[in-house]
């Protein structure tokens, strides 16, 4: 299926959401990614990714409570869906495959 490919960036985002478990929302996802990978990503890009992932069905969202810090605006929490987890496994499996082949080929000679 066309839309079911997981881009690299989207994968990172999905992973971050999984890692954050309950507390995955815009700002926290951004921070998590920054901490783990050292990448500062733009909020716009992040939200595009989040929207696309949601459209693909890999993420589910719910509206949280409003907090004073956010000026009374509620947070949108993201959660990984079953298919999201499945696609992550699939992506991981694909990567593993390639890496296995590389090991078999003896790294040194590949260089």
């Amino acid at each position: 299926m066309k839309g079911s490919y997981l881009g690299e960036f989207q994968e990172i985002v999905l992973l971050a959401v999984l890692v954050l478990r309950e507390g995955a929302y815009g700002v926290s996802i951004q921070k998590e990614i920054a901490e783990r990978t050292g990448r500062t990503i733009s909020r716009g890009a992040l939200h595009s990714a989040l929207s696309r992932l949601e459209d693909k069905g890999f993420l589910k969202s719910r509206l949280g409570e409003a907090t004073k810090v956010r000026g009374g605006k509620s947070k949108k929490y993201y959660e990984c869906s079953q298919s999201g987890v499945a696609s992550l496994h699939e992506a991981e499996a694909n990567r593993q495959q390639f890496h296995k082949s590389l090991v078999n080929l003896n790294f040194r000679s590949a260089i």
């Binding site: 929302y25 815009g26 700002v27 909020r43 939200h47 509206l63 810090v69 956010r70 000026g71 605006k73 509620s74 947070k75 949108k76």
Partner: peptide, 15 residues
């Protein structure tokens, strides 16, 4: 639809 979420994010980061 997106306003609450995004604006809120902006504000939080601002703080």
């Amino acid at each position: 639809e997106l306003y609450d979420e995004l604006a809120g994010d902006l504000e939080e980061t601002f703080d």
